[in-house]
């Protein structure tokens, strides 16, 4: 492992944790949007209570990934920021409205209508943001980030991301986040009825995850040839797909037979496997076709102290982050 690879792994790791925690917070917002039936209010309350204490801390994983990217792979970061200006800006608006509307809703006391308005803004933003996040990742994976984009025509700033593969990956991300949230909520629900509500939601979104995975894989043949090639022709490809498929299936079965805690573990493993697949397929690129991990990394005099800070971070953050979850999620 070179220092550059270690930092790349740390970026990958923060994104995994972000998906598992912050991603599920977005998923919660999705289920807020789709809350209906006699228990719609209870569903929303459960979601709000689940998010309240942790979403800001979860969100930091995303910032960490960004910061590590611009420290260790500065030119890749610059190129991504230029080519994907538009979807990143839209995603930021989503992040702003999700976070702001969430607290505004909980603090608004003057009128129920205003409160409902904020709730709506929160849930719509929670639904759109993961799609944009997926589009951004998809655009990077598809190999369309060039090092010096020309400022004309404007199409140069649209074509990298407004394509079938990135958009499909956007919906895949949405489904994955919604699935994780629904599975977590089956465990956190206090009543049998609520648990059933989220069980159905988890089953539906779980199937969607599988469906979109296939769509992405098929579209990737043309849309992200490099990743597609790695995911289908390497020695690890077939066993890897089998393993992910089996875990996904087991998660659904556990949901079906109401083994919710086991389903939660399996859903997490499934998500991690998906990320491992992405990481392996993307290797050795930070952003194909120009930026490889080794060639675009900052000099060693930067990476070494950075790795020390990361180590310090693991020592400090792991126990405190765990403590936060222990306090609020132990029941």
């Amino acid at each position: 492992m070179t220092p550059a690879l270690l930092v790349a792994a740390a970026i990958w790791g923060s994104l995994v944790i972000y998906a598992l925690t912050g991603g599920a917070d977005f998923g919660g917002g999705v289920w807020d949007l789709f809350a209906h039936g006699p228990r719609a209010k209870d569903q929303r309350r459960l979601i709000a209570n689940a998010l309240g204490p942790i979403w800001e801390a979860n969100h930091v994983w995303f910032i960490l990934a960004l910061v590590l990217l611009f420290i260790a792979f500065p030119f890749a970061f610059a190129a991504i920021s230029i080519s994907l200006h538009i979807p990143i800006t839209l995603m930021l608006l989503g992040i702003v409205f999700r976070g702001a509307a969430f607290v505004f809703r909980s603090q608004e006391t003057s009128s129920v209508r205003m409160q409902r308005g904020w709730g709506y803004a929160f849930s719509v933003a929670s639904t759109i943001t993961p799609v944009l996040l997926g589009i951004i990742v998809g655009a990077i994976a598809s190999g369309s980030i060039v090092s010096k984009p020309k400022d004309w025509p404007l199409w140069n700033f649209i074509s990298p991301w407004l394509a079938f593969f990135p958009v499909a990956l956007g919906f895949f991300t949405l489904a994955l986040f919604a699935f994780l949230a629904a599975v977590y909520l089956t465990v956190e629900a206090r009543t049998v009825d609520l648990r059933n509500d989220f069980r159905i939601r988890a089953l539906i979104s779980g199937v969607m995850v599988g469906l979109f995975a296939w769509v992405c894989f098929i579209l990737g043949k043309n849309g992200a040839p490099l990743i597609h090639g790695n995911l289908s022709h390497e020695s690890w490809s077939v066993p890897f797909h089998l393993l992910t498929g089996i875990v996904a299936l087991l998660a659904l079965i556990c949901l079906w037979v109401r083994r919710f805690k086991a389903a939660r573990v399996l859903a997490i493993v499934q998500a991690i496997l998906i990320f491992i697949g992405w990481g392996l397929a993307q290797y050795p690129f930070i952003a194909a076709p120009t930026f490889t991990i080794s060639a675009s990394a900052a000099p060693i005099s930067v990476l070494e102290p950075l790795l020390k800070v990361i180590l310090l971070g693991i020592v400090l953050v792991a126990p405190t982050f765990g403590f936060l979850f222990y306090i609020f999620k132990r029941h």
Partner: peptide
Amino acid sequence: FFLEAIFLGI
């Protein structure tokens, strides 16, 4: 940020 956000939640 981690320090702040984690203990803010608590």
